[in-house]
């Protein structure tokens, strides 16, 4: 056993990653070992580098390798629009779409009565500070269409709507969605937000 102790440890760690269990981690590790030069060594190198340099952007909460992320540094993104998202995965999803050209603010969660998460546990005070420090004309609340997400959106709107224009994402039928498979709540929201053709 001792001869494979490090490999077992690597499998244990890999198995803790999202989407992987012990069996799939074992397969991944075996694959890495077989492709040592092509995958394992570069992966180890880049993981070491990222472990040393990854940090939260001091301005928006995005993850990067510098104190201020690329988006916050870019003058092209200073178009007056600020998109508020729940976490970094949501920011990456917005960036994937390539539609939004402004800057972001990552809250780090949502208000939750069940988990006793209050406004002070989120990056809401930093958002208010940004409104004073930067030239922002519109805040877009791109929070999840859940009760907690929308409660947070309304709370933030309540705090800042006297200073700046506040909008939120629309809710309704997703692209490729079939009405027959939608839940009652989505159909009601879509009907309430219907638009003239």
């Amino acid at each position: 056993m001792s001869a494979t102790r490090d490999i077992d440890h690597l499998i244990e760690l890999m198995a803790k990653l999202p989407g992987l269990g012990p069996r799939s981690a074992r397969r991944a590790v075996l694959h890495l070992i077989r492709k040592r030069d092509l995958l394992l060594t570069p992966l180890a190198d880049v993981m070491q580098t990222v472990a040393a340099t990854a940090r939260e952007c001091l301005n928006c909460g995005n993850v990067g390798t510098t104190d201020i992320c690329d988006i916050c540094q870019s003058e092209k993104r200073a178009n007056g629009e600020l998109c508020v998202v729940e976490d970094v995965a949501d920011l990456w999803a917005m960036e994937r779409s390539g539609v939004f050209k402004g800057r972001y603010h990552v809250l780090g969660g949502t208000l939750s009565a069940l988990d006793a998460v209050g406004p002070d546990d989120l990056r809401i005070p930093q958002l208010v500070n940004r409104l004073e420090a930067e030239t922002i004309s519109e805040v877009i609340l791109a929070l999840n269409a859940t009760i907690d997400g929308q409660t947070t959106a309304h709370y933030i709107a309540d705090q800042i709507e006297h200073r700046v224009s506040v909008t939120s994402l629309a809710q309704g039928v997703p692209i490729g969605g079939e009405l027959d498979y939608l839940d009652d709540g989505t159909i009601t929201a879509a009907l309430n937000a219907r638009k003239k053709l």
């Binding site: 009760i147 929308q150 309304h154 839940d183 709540g185 989505t186 009601t188 309430n192």
Partner: peptide, 20 residues
């Protein structure tokens, strides 16, 4: 499901949060 009614407004959202 009450999600659509609850998400319809600020008072409904805050109220539902208080009850739950």
């Amino acid at each position: 499901s009450r999600a659509a009614a609850v998400m319809g407004g600020r008072l409904a959202l805050t109220g539902a949060g208080a009850v739950m």
